[in-house]
C-alpha cells in the first residue's frame, strides 16, 4: 500500500515537473516577442530610440534579458513563492491576482453544473437501463444532448431565451447597473446571469453521463456474476445494486477527467456568455499574446488535472478491490 502510494506520488511529481517545464517553454518558444507585441498594441507618438529604451526597460522588468537557464531557475523560484509573473495584457497586474479573480466564477459555474449533471445523469442512466420504455425515450434524447456542441447550445439558448424572449441576460456575471454588494438584488442578479451558462453546461453533460451509465449497467448485467446471481435466484434489486456499484467505477474516472479539464470544457460556454472565468480569460490571453497569463492559466489547468487524477487513484483503492490486486503488479 505504502509502496504503491510512494510510486504514485513520484510519478505525479515527475509529471508535474515535465508539464511545468513545457508550460515555461511556451512564451520562450513563440516566434513573436511578447514585449514588442505589448508596446505595439497602441501606437506611440515617440521615436524609435524611445521605444528601444522602453523595450529594454520592460525586458528587464519581465526578466527576459537573462540567460535562459537563469530564467528557468527564476521561474521555479518564483513559482514556489506563488509568483507567476506579470500579465502583459493586464499590465501591471500580477498573473496570480488575475487568476484569483476569475477562479470563483469558474467554481460557481462549473462545480454545480458538473456535479449535478453527473449525479442526475447517472441516476437517469440507471433508470433507463431498467425499463425498456424509458430507455427508448431517454437514450435518444441523451444522444442528441451529448452530441450538441457546447457553443451551439449556448448560442441557441442565448438567442431564444435572451434575445427572442428577453428572459435572461446573455453576457457578463452581473448587471452593469449594479455594484457588488451583499444584497438580494445583487445575488438574484448574479443567479440570473448564471442560469443560462449553467443550463447549457448541465444539459450537455447530463446526456453524456446518462449514456455512459446506461451502457455500463447493461454490460454489468450480462457479466458472469450477474448471471450467476440470477441463476441462484437472487432478487433483481440486489443484482442491480451490484451492477450499479461496478458500473459507477468508469463513471468516477470520467468525473475526474471532467473535473480536471474543467477549464477547457467551459471555455466556449464562457466565451458565448462572456462569463469571466478562466476559460474566458484564457481566450483573451491568447488573443492578446499574453504569454505569461497563458502560462498561468495552463499551470492552473495542469494542477487541476493532476489533483483530480490523484484523488481518483485514491478513491479507486477504496471502492474497487480489484485494483488493489492489480497495483501489486504482474507477480500477483
Amino acid at each position: 500500500m505504502r509502496r504503491y502510494l510512494t510510486r504514485k506520488i513520484l510519478i505525479y511529481t515527475l509529471t508535474f515537473f515535465l508539464a511545468v517545464t513545457i508550460d515555461w517553454l511556451i512564451p520562450r518558444f513563440m516566434p513573436g516577442d511578447p514585449i514588442r507585441n505589448m508596446l505595439a498594441r497602441v501606437s506611440v507618438a515617440s521615436n524609435a530610440s524611445a521605444i528601444q529604451m522602453m523595450y529594454d526597460y520592460y525586458a528587464r522588468l519581465f526578466g527576459l534579458d537573462l540567460p535562459l537557464w537563469q530564467q528557468y531557475l527564476n521561474f521555479w523560484k518564483a513559482l514556489f513563492q506563488g509568483n507567476l509573473g506579470i500579465s502583459t495584457y493586464l499590465f501591471p497586474t500580477p498573473v496570480i491576482e488575475v487568476l484569483k479573480r476569475a477562479v470563483p466564477y469558474d467554481a460557481f459555474l462549473l462545480i454545480p453544473s458538473i456535479l449535478l449533471a453527473w449525479y442526475a445523469g447517472n441516476n437517469f442512466g440507471a433508470i433507463a437501463a431498467r425499463s425498456k420504455r424509458l430507455d427508448n425515450f431517454i437514450l435518444p434524447l441523451s444522444y442528441v444532448l451529448t452530441a450538441t456542441p457546447y457553443m451551439w447550445l449556448g448560442i441557441l439558448l442565448a438567442w431564444f431565451f435572451g434575445i427572442v424572449l428577453g428572459l435572461f441576460p446573455i453576457a457578463g456575471a452581473y448587471s452593469f447597473s449594479l455594484r457588488p454588494t451583499w444584497s438580494w438584488t445583487f445575488v438574484l442578479d448574479l443567479l440570473h446571469h448564471w442560469f443560462l451558462p449553467f443550463a447549457s453546461l448541465f444539459i450537455i453533460d447530463f446526456g453524456g453521463w446518462a449514456i455512459g451509465m446506461r451502457n455500463m449497467i447493461i454490460y454489468e448485467l450480462e457479466a458472469e456474476y450477474s448471471r450467476y446471481l440470477t441463476a441462484l435466484g437472487a432478487p433483481q434489486r440486489l443484482i442491480r445494486r451490484y451492477a450499479f456499484n461496478n458500473a459507477i467505477l468508469p463513471q468516477i474516472t470520467g468525473l475526474a477527467l471532467r473535473l480536471g479539464v474543467i477549464v477547457a470544457g467551459a471555455l466556449v460556454t464562457e466565451v458565448v456568455f462572456s462569463y469571466p472565468g478562466i476559460g474566458y480569460l484564457l481566450l483573451a490571453a491568447i488573443q492578446n499574446q499574453d504569454y505569461f497569463l497563458i502560462q498561468g492559466c495552463f499551470l492552473f489547468i495542469i494542477l487541476g488535472v493532476l489533483i483530480a487524477n490523484f484523488v481518483i487513484d485514491l478513491v479507486y483503492i477504496v471502492v474497487d478491490p480489484r485494483t488493489r490486486r492489480g497495483m501489486v503488479g504482474e507477480s500477483a
Binding site: G260, A264, F298, I301, V305
Partner: peptide, 8 residues
C-alpha cells in the same frame, strides 16, 4: 497523464 495535462 502528461499528454492529458499538456494544455493542447
Amino acid at each position: 497523464n502528461i499528454v492529458l495535462v499538456i494544455p493542447t
